[in-house]
Design a protein around this nucleic acid. Structure first.
Length: 492
DNA sequence: GCCGGAGTAAACATGC
DNA sequence: CGCATGTTTACTCCGG
């Protein structure tokens, strides 16, 4: 029997489990930076137990040295735990991203130890754990971030049309002593996520991740974001921080199904916005990569977009919409703790369930703190950036005074992108083994991707208007692979 | 009422 | 020619 599924016009109550903890499914964009607001009396006390996660997890690790859980060393990252704040709501910020990545790794069978039950009915979650390896849920590495494929050997349904509609996520004391690998496939539709008591942080991450799928269920209302915000999110969500307009369309369609049935004029609006909005600028892409240009966010105007996003309505559920109560407005103390937060005002309309919550941490500048210069990790990037500059402009830039170099590179780096192409550079120019782990058939494509990525990253560093873009691309692609500049070797 | 931002529609150019 | 992409203009709506 098909479980009841909340329709687009249903309120949060239909998503709420009757059990002691009821967390509205959090529709989020790329996971972190979501705030789950609990309605009064619906389990906030239980959630507070999540504060104990740190202890629980460390105890579990100590007592299960050989358990697969040890692969979840990311949980030792205190930042993850610091990122949680349990003052009536669950707040989840940048630190979670790493966790999610690990979860992604985890669900590919590297780790184990979760009890996840996929059910087709909304009965009480007491049994029928799905135990399996090789889980293959939505591929978080995909650009659209929502693809899903059946898990081989899954004991649950294996096609989107028959996928389980309810995913119970358990965290029971001692659960980690047994090795429950899970295989719970669900498609990009029809998924409710129910969180059981004693939710641990790791499961919260799962929940967040799973909730990502929820985006596709209820997003039938017009997004509360301007087109510039949508474009911004799309571009920022891309691996190279640049997208052709077609991909921007696709991203928007992926994340906001509203547009699937919207009049086609919205594409016009997107193009109009790209052309008119000074926040976006066009970058010629390699001539062999199809027609059209790549669109990037102009770093000069990036703060404007971040600000626009921050002004966007935030919380998917407001209590005023669902049974009364107060809206969540982060305190100033909270604001000081987390520089990534969106505030929604009472006068602003809140997004409906299923609309996106921007992952704001992703859009904030990552390398603007001067102290980063002294950070060995950032020097790694600096050297890579310097290497890339050298790639284009010869060793002259490398011979600058170190301090000046750092300053220059950082400045230009910020102008370029906040991304870190160091891995890309390494792979391309050091015969990184990871490049050769790709099958022969995919290697050239991978190299092409890397080259495109590097081009996007370095294009802003090129002298403007020096020849046609395509010739510059050719020139760049033909650029000799220079030896790593001094100081970079140790990082390679 | 004014102004600016945002959304929408449309015309037009360009290139594949 | 059709279509996608990109630019520009004009208009409306809305909130400050």
């Amino acid at each position: 029997m098909a479980p009841e599924r909340p329709g687009p016009d249903d309120d949060a109550a239909t998503l709420v489990h009757r059990g002691p903890v009821s967390i509205p499914v959090v529709p989020i964009f790329s996971l972190p930076s979501a705030i789950v607001q609990l309605k009064e009396g619906d389990g906030a006390g239980n959630l507070i137990t999540a504060v104990k996660v740190e202890d629980v997890m460390s105890e579990e690790r100590e007592s299960n040295e050989d358990d697969d859980l040890t692969s979840l060393s990311w949980l030792q990252d205190k930042n993850l735990l610091k990122a949680a704040n349990f003052s009536g709501c669950v707040q989840c910020f940048g630190g979670v991203l790493r966790g999610v990545a690990q979860v992604s790794k985890y669900r590919r069978g590297v780790g184990a130890g979760m009890n996840i039950r996929a059910a087709e009915t909304q009965e009480s979650p007491t049994s029928d754990y799905v135990e399996d390896g090789g889980s293959d849920l939505a591929d978080s590495t995909s650009s659209s971030g929502h693809s899903a494929s059946p898990a081989p050997g899954s004991s649950t349904k294996s096609t989107p049309s028959t996928c389980p509609t309810t995913l119970w996520v358990h965290d029971m004391k001692g659960a980690f002593t047994t090795s429950h690998k899970f295989s719970c496939y669900f498609g990009s539709q029809d998924l409710n996520v129910k969180i059981c008591p004693n939710l641990s942080y790791s499961f919260f991450v799962i929940e967040m991740w799973a909730a990502r799928e929820q985006i596709h269920v209820h997003t039938n209302s017009k997004p509360p974001y301007s087109f510039s915000c949508l474009i911004f999110m799309a571009i920022e969500d891309s691996p190279v921080k640049a997208l052709p307009v077609k991909e921007i369309y696709a991203w928007i369609l992926d994340h906001f199904p509203y547009f699937q049935n919207a009049p086609t004029g919205w594409k016009n609006s997107v193009r109009h916005n790209l052309s008119l909005n000074k926040c976006f600028r066009k970058v010629e892409k390699a001539p062999n990569l199809g027609k059209g240009s790549l669109w990037m966010v102009d770093s000069l105007y990036r703060p404007n977009l971040v600000q626009a996003l921050q002004k966007a309505p935030y919380h998917p559920y407001t209590s005023s919409e669902h049974g009364g109560g107060k809206e969540y407005i982060p305190s100033s103390a909270h604001l000081s703790r987390h520089n990534t937060v969106a505030v929604f005002k009472s006068s602003q309309r809140a997004p409906r369930p299923g609309t996106l919550v921007p992952r704001l941490d992703m859009f904030l500048p990552r390398r603007q703190q001067p102290e980063d210069v002294d950070d060995p990790d950032s020097l790694d990037d600096v050297d890579a950036a310097a290497a890339m500059l050298a790639l284009k402009h010869g060793h002259r830039v490398i011979t600058l005074d170190r301090g000046q170099l750092v300053h220059t590179v950082l400045k230009r780096w910020d102008m370029c992108l906040q991304d870190t192409p160091v891995q890309c550079w390494k792979q391309l120019h050091t015969r990184d083994p990871s490049l050769y782990c790709h099958p022969e058939s995919q290697r050239s494509r991978h190299v092409n991707t890397l080259q495109q990525r590097l081009y996007c990253l370095t294009e802003p560093l090129l002298p403007p208007n020096k020849g046609h873009a395509s010739s510059r691309v050719r020139h760049w692609r033909a650029a000799p692979i220079l030896p790593a500049p001094r100081g970079l070797d140790k990082h390679l």
